[in-house]
Design a protein around this nucleic acid. Structure first.
Lengths: 330, 330
DNA sequence: TGTGAAAATTAGAGCGCTCTATACATAAGC
DNA sequence: GCTTATGTATAGAGCGCTCTAATTTTCACA
């Protein structure tokens, strides 16, 4: 399929290639007459501009690259959706690559984006601080979402985890709970901040912040839940590291005949699809990921347009109350 | 950031640009000595090949485009993962675009891919039969996953829905069930085949195939479940259109105090993450999406290498038995 | 030492587009 | 009528790479 080029269109329309180029780029400096003629020829010849050539010649791609650690994670899907929305508003395209949950994969995905020379990159990564990241930020405008490292070279956009934890503690204490346990996620992105927010919120109320070790998955949370329910005085509420972890807790409590929320209240984090599932209906903290994605695009475009100093912003989450939390049992 | 070009590297290494090009493409026709020299210079100058220029000059992109209707759907995520695996094996890159669940979005995403002139496209679409799709298949090698239309212009890869339904019916009848209801998903991709498979499997066993209307989401399945449980003789097993629908059924049954699987067995379809959730643990049909993605890549590469006639293949799903199915109550 | 083939390298013509000058109309100003 | 504006259109030089064909170097062998 030999492709139709601008020259073909120009010849067919009886004008110069430069004019066709102007028409294709919606330049106002073209007469209506010529524009119509060119457009007609282009349509007739089934002309499709060659992006490679255009980008090569113009030196910019009009494209934002998005690197997502894990396509399965709705958290990242929403981020990408927000980026897409922001990009569309600004007439830019979005190309997505994924690291398939592996660090090597993330690096390869970034390499792909770097080679493509997208105008900027939005990072939805799992592990920051890798060399590939800082090297990248050196080479192209970059916004990292949920990166609490705040390096100079890139902008960052984080959720206010402390505030989210505060919301949870406030909600639970207002329901009368005082023995509240948090299952954390070690050093995973956002987890330390979430934990810190929890202990602060509890301490501020004169309550003992009890933390069990876990991770952002079901199994470890389930394991933690087993230990937790073996306590002499089990808590009346459990605040899990994220929705998936909450689901693990949920499953264990159900299996040992503990009623939710009559006996124990459970709270998740992220408001992923699973939290909304009728069969679970989890009270959780909603991170405005779509908004994050949108804001990330704005920051990126500022950078593309020349801003030099890094910005680090915090976005406020909100609480979504569903059916897994209720008044403390007496 | 003026970029380093091949000429810079060539000059620095004291060789010609053509030689650098050969080294970059791993040509065997370069002496070890020169190769080392070039590589050293490239590293020192932080050289990164310009993909746009390369693709323009070579006329191919070494990239597979993947269009996914919905990034939130794990079904598509796995498809993409399979494509990525296949692509990596063949030294190709993968670029993902999404239609964000809208038909217009799908068309725009395809336009993006077409403009990029990726060597081929894998389609994970929701609605096939649109003009944009057939136009696309005309222009570039295309493999459509889960497209039961089987047009000449593109390859298709479908799951053997009839077989999947047969697996479900076989599993349930072997547990003693005979009053089995299927909640379908109208004309959504795969749904008619699934329904047909169900009715055939039931009829083959001399059982009445009862079908309720639904869709691939929770709400409609929940609505159907409400009607179903109002039947004079409610079924002892419900086979939902997909996992999400099963979750809706699950939620309703729980809410009216029906025990799963003691009173009613529930089966889903797709084996998405939610089926594996401890809190749900759904018996479901596993579609080998990752394998589909992998196979799609193989077909695509055959096409890229010149195969003209379309291939239409069927992949066999398998049954994953979890905790929502059990012997029929007496 | 010469010769031919094989191996290694290079020149240079594109790939399809953008973009800066420059050219050419036509209209306006005096 | 001539000059200066103003609006359109075009020539042509790249953008950074690939790839064919040609050239140069190397090496085996007579």
């Amino acid at each position: 399929m030999a492709q139709t080029t601008m020259d073909d269109v120009a010849q067919h329309a009886g004008v110069s290639r430069a004019l066709v180029s102007l028409v294709m780029r919606d330049s106002p400096r073209v007469s209506d007459h010529s524009r119509a003629k060119v457009l007609a020829s282009a349509a007739e010849l089934d002309y499709r501009p060659n992006v490679w050539a255009r980008n090569l010649a113009s030196g910019q791609t009009n494209t934002i690259g998005v690197m997502l650690n894990d396509l399965h994670n709705p958290y990242f899907a929403e981020l990408a959706e927000g980026v897409a929305a922001g990009a569309t508003e600004n007439g830019m395209e979005v190309l997505i690559t994924s690291g398939w949950q592996r660090e090597a994969g993330e690096n390869a995905a970034i390499e792909t984006l770097l080679n493509l020379r997208t105008d900027g990159i939005v990072l939805g990564a799992a592990r920051f601080g890798s060399e590939a990241f800082s090297e990248m930020a050196q080479q192209t405008p970059t916004v990292a979402v949920s990166n609490f490292h705040k390096p100079d070279a890139m902008d960052t956009l984080c959720n206010d985890e402390a505030y989210g934890a505060e919301l949870v503690v406030e909600h639970l204490t207002s329901l009368g709970h005082s023995r509240i346990v948090h299952i954390d996620a070690g050093t995973a992105p956002g987890a330390p901040e979430r934990r810190k927010g929890f202990t602060t919120a509890m301490s501020n109320r004169g309550l003992a912040p009890i933390v069990f070790e876990g991770d952002y998955n079901e199994q470890s949370a389930r394991a933690a839940a087993i230990d937790i329910m073996k306590l002499k005085e089990p808590p009346t509420a459990i605040f899990a590291a994220n929705d998936l972890a909450a689901s693990g807790v949920f499953a264990h409590l159900r299996s040992i005949g503990v009623s939710i929320p009559d006996d124990v209240s459970v709270v998740g984090y992220d408001d992923t699809v699973l939290a909304g599932l009728g069969a679970i209906s989890l009270t959780t903290v909603r991170q405005p990921m779509q908004m994050s994605g949108h804001r990330a695009t704005e920051l990126l475009i500022e950078r593309i347009n020349g801003r030099e100093v890094a910005k680090h912003e915090l976005l406020r989450p909100s609480l979504v109350v569903r059916s897994t939390t209720g008044p403390v049992p007496k």
